[in-house]
Amino acid sequence: MLAELMWQAESDGADLATLRGIAEEAGELAAARALARLGLSDAGAAQDMAELRELLAAWRDAKRSALRAALGWCVRMVLALVLVKLGFGGWVK
């Protein structure tokens, strides 16, 4: 859409470099506004984002560990039930 508008303006006599400059400024302004609305326009925003990424990575690791532990317990329980069914109940404690 932007490229089409720039082509149309250029065909009407506007300078392509000026149009690109306008588009770049508009993009930077929009990005700054979006960051401000998210509360990430201050000097500590980069540190905040890094901490959020670390927190998200820790959450994913904890979730993965919990799933693995639950799966391990399920496997152990199934094996214990199989041993009991086969008559080796004395081995399961």
Score class of each variant (00 low, 15 high):
residue 21 G to K: 04
residue 76 R to S: 07
residue 75 V to G: 06
residue 91 W to K: 14
residue 27 G to E: 08
residue 82 V to L: 06
residue 48 D to K: 04
residue 27 G to R: 10
residue 48 D to F: 01
residue 68 R to D: 14
residue 26 A to F: 13
residue 38 L to R: 13
residue 14 A to W: 01
residue 26 A to I: 09
residue 3 A to P: 00
residue 15 D to I: 01
residue 51 E to C: 02
residue 29 L to M: 06
residue 36 A to V: 03
residue 74 C to V: 11
residue 12 D to I: 05
residue 32 A to F: 03
residue 52 L to G: 07
residue 13 G to H: 01
residue 20 R to F: 02
residue 20 R to S: 14
residue 89 G to E: 03
residue 61 D to N: 06
residue 28 E to C: 02
residue 3 A to R: 06
residue 68 R to C: 12
residue 44 G to Y: 11
residue 3 A to G: 05
residue 84 V to C: 14
residue 51 E to Q: 03
residue 15 D to N: 08
residue 60 R to G: 10
residue 76 R to Q: 13
residue 39 G to P: 01
residue 55 L to T: 12
residue 10 E to T: 01
residue 15 D to Y: 00
residue 77 M to H: 10
residue 35 L to W: 08
residue 9 A to L: 05
residue 92 V to P: 04
residue 86 L to R: 15
residue 92 V to Q: 12
residue 5 L to W: 06
residue 81 L to E: 15
residue 93 K to F: 00
residue 74 C to N: 11
residue 50 A to L: 04
residue 20 R to Q: 06
residue 43 A to R: 11
residue 48 D to M: 05
residue 69 A to E: 13
residue 9 A to M: 03
residue 14 A to S: 08
residue 78 V to K: 14
residue 1 M to Y: 05
residue 52 L to V: 07
residue 7 W to Q: 00
residue 7 W to G: 05
residue 53 R to F: 06
residue 26 A to E: 04
residue 5 L to H: 12
residue 19 L to C: 04
residue 52 L to K: 11
residue 1 M to V: 15
residue 55 L to G: 09
residue 75 V to K: 01
residue 28 E to V: 02
residue 27 G to I: 00
residue 7 W to R: 03
residue 69 A to I: 07
residue 18 T to E: 04
residue 10 E to H: 00
residue 57 A to H: 08
residue 44 G to H: 13
residue 28 E to S: 11
residue 66 A to N: 10
residue 33 R to V: 12
residue 68 R to F: 06
residue 84 V to K: 14
residue 28 E to F: 07
residue 12 D to Q: 10
residue 61 D to C: 01
residue 60 R to A: 14
residue 32 A to K: 03
residue 40 L to W: 01
residue 66 A to V: 02
residue 68 R to E: 15
residue 38 L to Q: 12
residue 53 R to H: 12
residue 65 S to P: 06
residue 16 L to P: 07
residue 9 A to V: 09
residue 56 L to I: 06
residue 50 A to G: 02
residue 90 G to I: 08
residue 49 M to Y: 08
residue 31 A to Q: 03
residue 2 L to S: 05
residue 53 R to E: 05
residue 83 L to F: 05
residue 64 R to Y: 09
residue 58 A to S: 11
residue 73 W to M: 15
residue 55 L to F: 08
residue 33 R to S: 08
residue 2 L to K: 00
residue 73 W to K: 11
residue 36 A to M: 08
residue 61 D to P: 04
residue 38 L to T: 04
residue 1 M to K: 03
residue 81 L to G: 15
residue 27 G to K: 11
residue 18 T to D: 01
residue 41 S to I: 01
residue 40 L to P: 01
residue 88 F to T: 10
residue 86 L to S: 08
residue 27 G to Y: 13
residue 61 D to Q: 14
residue 83 L to W: 11
residue 44 G to S: 07
residue 63 K to A: 12
